[in-house]
Design a protein around this nucleic acid. Sequence first.
DNA 1: TTATGTGAACGCATTCACAGCC
DNA 2: GGCTGTGAATGCGTTCACATAA
Lengths: 209, 209
Amino acid sequence: MKRIADSTIRRLSLYLRFLEEFEARGLSTISSDELAARGGTTSAQVRKDLSFFGSFGKRGLGYSVPELSSRLRKILGLEREWRVIIIGAGKIGAALAQYNGFAERGFRITAIYDNDPRKIGRDVDGLTIRALDCLPTDRESTEAEIAVIAVPASAAQATADLVVDAGIRAIMSFAPRRLTVPEEVSVKMINMAMELEGLSFALTNRGSA
Amino acid sequence: MKRIADSTIRRLSLYLRFLEEFEARGLSTISSDELAARGGTTSAQVRKDLSFFGSFGKRGLGYSVPELSSRLRKILGLEREWRVIIIGAGKIGAALAQYNGFAERGFRITAIYDNDPRKIGRDVDGLTIRALDCLPTDRESTEAEIAVIAVPASAAQATADLVVDAGIRAIMSFAPRRLTVPEEVSVKMINMAMELEGLSFALTNRGSA
DNA sequence: TTATGTGAACGCATTCACAGCC
DNA sequence: GGCTGTGAATGCGTTCACATAA
């Protein structure tokens, strides 16, 4: 398969959301124009994004809503459930464990870890916080596929190494640090403070920018 | 000022973090190469990013750590404190209110709002959850500059409209929906479920991608 | 000699425009 | 006629390479 841009994948996710809304409303077809309007992009962009994966539409008509959403779910790998573990039971980690938005999208949180003895054994939304040392053995049985790293920046790289050694190939990290990982491991960074700084920049330079 | 790419601003944020670490360790100069290595980019990229704003280095020597970090703080608008309000006291909103990472970077959370009567009046980390209706009048006195939208997707646009009407010009949204706002309003989207879907895609198509 | 600053070259994502099919 | 699918054109961020200054 040809290399696909990250931005394309992010848009596919977005299209799928709209398709699911349309599906819920019982609509049967949709045009690239309608998808584009909802996603804040152009119809050409929508068609190009889809074209990397095949031809799903009918000329003169548009796309079948159930068919296209099924194709997108397949492309994105969302036909199965993914097992997610959270490392770090601080404010962010604990909030994520309690957040329902992941499960709704097929990402089931199976465990939460920390290395602070005061936190280990405590309960977070039905999950018991486990010692980080347990991770390698735990994984042999649970086979989690995705790790969320929500530890302090200074511990992020060591945590990533541990997670990769345990056989995990996908990481979502909240630490403001670039993680060095083998190339077969995918990493997504989420940095809220950095986004706020982007807003600070925009506010400071508005008018002239 | 010339239009600056988002990616440049995000990298400036990152450089600033490294500079602060260097400053804390008492180092006085740093080269574009060292900054690049830490940030996972190239020295040419670092120099180009900085060149949009001026010439801060000394040829043959590098950059003065305290001077460059001060310049970056000024560029990013981080010499002042920003007042942030959170809309939506659900899992995400409440977690953000308790999270210390923002205050550390100069973003002070001054209020949290919800429109669920059962939540209004409750306390979250020292802040009392206020009725959403209070926002317009509150803002006249508090003059918050940034709003974090952590409401369900279906309410996101209405919330954005309310916030914009109240005079706020910067929004960080956690709702998986494109927000339509006047062009003078800056919006940053954070969508964790979408990032997870990106990982799902990578895992599903690994090897062939 | 060393490392910055920057115009020029490059590569890649987006946009255009139209041929192709319903 | 309407809308998709796609090569070609465009625009833009990144990389290169070297003149410039310490």
